[in-house]
Amino acid sequence: MLTVTNVDKFYGGVKAVENVSLEVNKGKIIGLIGTNGAGKTTLFNVISGFDKLDRGSVNFDGQEISNLLPSKIANLGMIRTFQTATGFPRLTVLENLLVFSENNNFEFYKNFLNKNEQNKEQIEKAENLLKKFGLFEKKNQWVVDLSAPELKILEFARAIMGNPQIMLLDEPAAGVNPALLEQLMEIIQELNGEGITFLIVDHNLRFICDISDFIYVMNDGKLIAQGKPDEIVNNELVIETYIGK
């Protein structure tokens, strides 16, 4: 459902991403690992429209998306997260979810003219999500007052609220303690069971291997290996450049 073909991205004279192609099939969990500065996040930015690519193409559900705005790409059902999960600090937990609800109309004049109350149905959906993730008690608190683990969890609740077809997770395991990581993996697997596709970037090899159906390995902006988790952990090139030393 997501096909990246021969993508190049330069910053100044530096090639951040070079000739990367990858394929994400519907319903799968795809991992992308690489050291810091390997170009993973740049690739994410290119896919989700935050950066323009210099060459190549990104195809989502049969549509070329490499020249679309991030908001348009999100509208097609692709939702990404960011490395630092801050959410919207001075919006309440509930509002953080409602921003993402599918039938929001952000048009000025629609809101100016109509009596625009928050959709009851959507509020209910958001509240159910919060109950499920144990954040219901805090629904009317500003997100700035949440703890770091709560923010991580909220990130998933928020993404689900937008009914994505595919979620791009940028370093979900960074700074997460083992217990929480366990919980996040459960959430990801459960969502995957409900039909959501995942593309996950991380440098935690164990986490990526545990959760992914298929793994791409990046180094210095290039893909150096790909394969099933057990192939990856035994790939010599990966061991050399990644686990190394």
Binding site: F82, F106, N111
Partner: peptide, 19 residues
């Protein structure tokens, strides 16, 4: 909802785009 979108932009523009 419009106001909500403005506040979202104020708080985190990049994240708002994904919404």
């Amino acid at each position: 909802t419009y106001g909500l979108s403005l506040k979202a932009l104020r708080e985190n523009e990049a994240l708002a785009k994904t919404a």
